[in-house]
Design a binder for these strands. Sequence first.
DNA 1: ATCGAGACTGACCGTCCGGTCAGTAACGAG
DNA 2: CTCGTTACTGACCGGACGGTCAGTCTCGAT
Lengths: 203, 203
Amino acid sequence: MTATQNGAPARRGRPGHSVESLLGVAVAVFNERGYEATSMDELAVRLGVTKSAIYHHVPSKVELLRLALDRALDALFAVTEHPAATAGRAIDRLEHVVRASIGVLAAELPYVTLLLRVRGNSEVERSALQRRREFDRFVTALVRAAEHEGDVRPDVDPAVTSRLLFGTVNSLTEWYRPGGGLSADDLADSVVTVLFTGLRTRS
Amino acid sequence: MTATQNGAPARRGRPGHSVESLLGVAVAVFNERGYEATSMDELAVRLGVTKSAIYHHVPSKVELLRLALDRALDALFAVTEHPAATAGRAIDRLEHVVRASIGVLAAELPYVTLLLRVRGNSEVERSALQRRREFDRFVTALVRAAEHEGDVRPDVDPAVTSRLLFGTVNSLTEWYRPGGGLSADDLADSVVTVLFTGLRTRS
DNA sequence: ATCGAGACTGACCGTCCGGTCAGTAACGAG
DNA sequence: CTCGTTACTGACCGGACGGTCAGTCTCGAT
C-alpha cells in the first residue's frame, strides 16, 4: 500500500483539500469573524477555491460547524473518562479535570473557542450546548463530592464554585495562545494556584 | 411643565417607543440570537412595529450596537474613577474594582454581555474592543502594583493574574441572572473569596 | 376645530448569501 | 493512451437582509 508524506493513504484522482484541512481553515475564519458573519464565499477565498468546491466536501455550512463542535466535545468528554478523573479523592480528581481541560483547550484551541461561542441558533448548536451542560454536571458533582470530603471550603455554594472554576478555564480562550512563551502546563499551574490556594499572601 | 409617570418630560405628537425602550429590546435579542444573526425584521416583530419604525429612531443597525456598547463601557470606566479604585493599597483597590465590576455586570447585564461578545467585525466593534483593552491595562497595572507592595503571590505573572481575574468576572455573564436568589453582593463575596484566598481548606 | 409634531406603515430596492448543477480539469491505474 | 475517480469551476436561483421613502395616523397644544 502506498502512502503520502503525512501518512494518509494515497488517494486516486485529482488532489485537493481534505475535509480535515477544510475544517481547519473554516474554524479559524469562524473564530475571527463569527460563524454567522462568515460567508461561504469568504471561506472559499481563504481556501483558494470557489464556493462550489466546498460543497463537494461538505453538504452545508452548518455541517462544517457540527464537525468542529464534535471535535471539541469529544476531546472534552475524553477527560471525564481518565482514570485520574474517576478514582481517588474528589479534590484531586477535580484538579486533574481542570488541568486536563486546560490541556485540551490548548491542544484544540480553535475548536474549543468555537464551542464556547455557540448560542443555540440551530439544532446543531443546541445539541452542542446540551453536551456542554452534561460536562458541567460532571464537574459540579466533583465539587460537591470534594466539599463532602471536607477538602473544599463550605462557605461557597458548589454550583457557584464549579461555574467559577470553568468560567475561569473557559475564559482562557479569549487570550491564551500556544507558542507565546507560556506552555499549557505552566498555564495550568497558574490557574490551579490562583483558584485552589488563592492570590493573597496575607489576609 | 408637565411630566409623565416615569419623570420624563411630556412629548408632543403620537406616543410610541423611545430610543431607550428600543435599545432594551434590541440588546435582549442580540444576546439571544447574536448580533449578526438578528435581522431588523425580527427586532421589529419583538417591538410590535414594522422595520421602518425602527429607522425612525435609529439610523442603522450598527448604531444600535454602538449605543449598547457605549452604555456598558461607560459604566465600566466609571469604576476606574471611584475614590476606592484610585487611593489606598493596590490590593484593596484591586478588590474594589473586582467587586464594583461585578456590580456593573449585574446592573447592566445585557449590555455587558453584548460587549463581551464583540469580535471586531465593524468599526464600532473595533473601537469597543480598544476601550476594553484600556480597561484591561488599568487592572493589570493594579495587579502589578499589588505584587510590588508584597500583597500578591509573586509566583504568577501579573499579566496572567489580571487575565484570570477578569476572565472569571467576565464569565459571570454566561450564567449569572439577577433575581435568582443570589444577590450581586453575595456573588462578589464568592468571587473574591475563591480568587483571593483560594478554594482549598488544606494543602 | 385646527395644526404641527412625532410615530409609524407598506411597498420597494439593490445586494449578498446559502445552495445547486452541468460540465471540466487533473490525477493514478492498467 | 484510455478509463475511472476525484476535485473543482462558473453560471445560476430563490430568498432574506439592511435600508429608503412617500404617505398616514395619533397625539398635545392652542
